[in-house]
Amino acid sequence: MKVNVPTIDVNAFNTFAERVKELDNQQGTTNVMMAGLLPGLSVILAIEAAKELSIVDEVHVGFLQSANALAGAQGAADMLEIASSKLPNGHRGFKEKRVFTNGRKSLTLRKINHSEQAVMKNVFNKATSHYWTSWDIAPFNKLVSTLIALRALPKYRHLFARFAKHRPDQSEEATLFVELTGLRNQKRTKSERQLTVTSDYEATSLVVTGLIPLVLINKVNGVVEPWQMATVQDLPVQKMKAK
Results as ranks from 00 to 15, higher is better:
1 M>C: 06
1 M>H: 06
2 K>H: 06
3 V>K: 10
4 N>Y: 01
6 P>E: 02
10 V>R: 00
17 A>R: 01
18 E>V: 06
23 L>M: 08
26 Q>M: 02
30 T>H: 02
34 M>Q: 05
35 A>P: 01
40 G>R: 00
42 S>H: 04
47 I>L: 13
48 E>R: 09
49 A>G: 15
50 A>W: 07
51 K>D: 15
56 V>M: 13
61 V>C: 10
75 G>I: 04
77 A>E: 10
86 K>I: 03
87 L>M: 13
93 G>I: 04
103 G>F: 11
103 G>W: 10
104 R>F: 13
104 R>G: 15
110 R>H: 10
111 K>T: 06
112 I>S: 11
116 E>M: 01
121 K>Q: 08
129 S>D: 04
134 S>C: 09
135 W>L: 13
137 I>P: 03
143 L>C: 10
144 V>E: 11
145 S>N: 14
149 A>Q: 07
149 A>C: 06
149 A>I: 03
151 R>T: 00
153 L>D: 11
167 R>M: 09
172 E>R: 11
172 E>H: 10
176 L>F: 09
190 K>Y: 13
192 E>F: 11
194 Q>H: 13
196 T>K: 13
200 D>Y: 08
210 G>A: 06
211 L>Q: 03
212 I>E: 04
212 I>Y: 03
215 V>H: 01
217 I>S: 03
220 V>D: 02
221 N>A: 04
222 G>C: 03
224 V>C: 04
225 E>Q: 08
230 A>P: 01
235 L>K: 04
240 M>Y: 04
241 K>E: 08
242 A>D: 10
243 K>W: 05
243 K>Q: 07
